[in-house]
Computed example of a mutant assay.
Amino acid sequence: MTKNIVTGVDGNFGSIVASKIQSLVPKESLLFTAPTKQGIKEYAKQGIKTAVADFNDVDGLVSIFENADTVLLISMPFVGKRRRQAHKNVIDACVKGNVKKIIYTSLVNATDPTMPSIEKIDHAWTESYIEATELDYIFLRNSQYAEAMITNYFAIADSGVLANNQGAGKMAYISREDCAIAAAHAIANPYLHHIILNINGPEQLTITDFINIGNQATSNSVRYNEVSDDEQYAIFDKMGVPRTTEGKFKKGSAAPFSSEGMVTFGQSIRNGQMAIQSNDFQAVTGRKPRTVEYLFENADKYQIGDRHVDN
Rank of each mutant, 00 (worst) to 15 (best):
F78A: 08
D112Q: 10
T2C: 07
T245L: 05
T151P: 04
I304D: 06
D92V: 09
N4I: 09
P113S: 14
F13M: 06
M239F: 10
P77V: 13
P77Q: 07
H308K: 06
K170Q: 15
I21V: 15
L73R: 01
V161E: 11
A157G: 05
G47F: 11
M262Q: 01
D280K: 06
S19D: 14
K238Y: 12
F236R: 02
Y233F: 15
I195S: 08
N271S: 11
G160I: 12
G252D: 00
R290T: 03
V99E: 06
Q38G: 15
L162P: 02
S106E: 11
S117W: 12
Q38R: 13
Q46C: 11
K45G: 09
D69F: 00
E127N: 12
F265H: 06
K88R: 10
D57V: 12
S228K: 04
D310S: 15
Y43S: 07
I118Q: 09
K81P: 04
A255Q: 02
H193C: 10
V222I: 05
I269F: 01
A182F: 08
F55Y: 12
Y294Q: 02
A234G: 14
S228I: 07
L73E: 08
G286A: 06
A180Y: 06
N298M: 12
A157I: 08
K101H: 13
Q267A: 14
I156Q: 03
A234H: 13
P242T: 12
I207S: 03
N165A: 15
N311C: 10
S15N: 15
A68C: 11
H87R: 09
T218S: 12
E246C: 05
A146F: 10
T264M: 08
S253M: 03
Y224L: 02
T70K: 03
K27I: 04
E127R: 11
A132L: 14
V222N: 00
E260F: 01
M115C: 09
N212Q: 10
L162I: 01
F210Q: 00
G266V: 04
N12L: 10
I235R: 04
K88G: 05
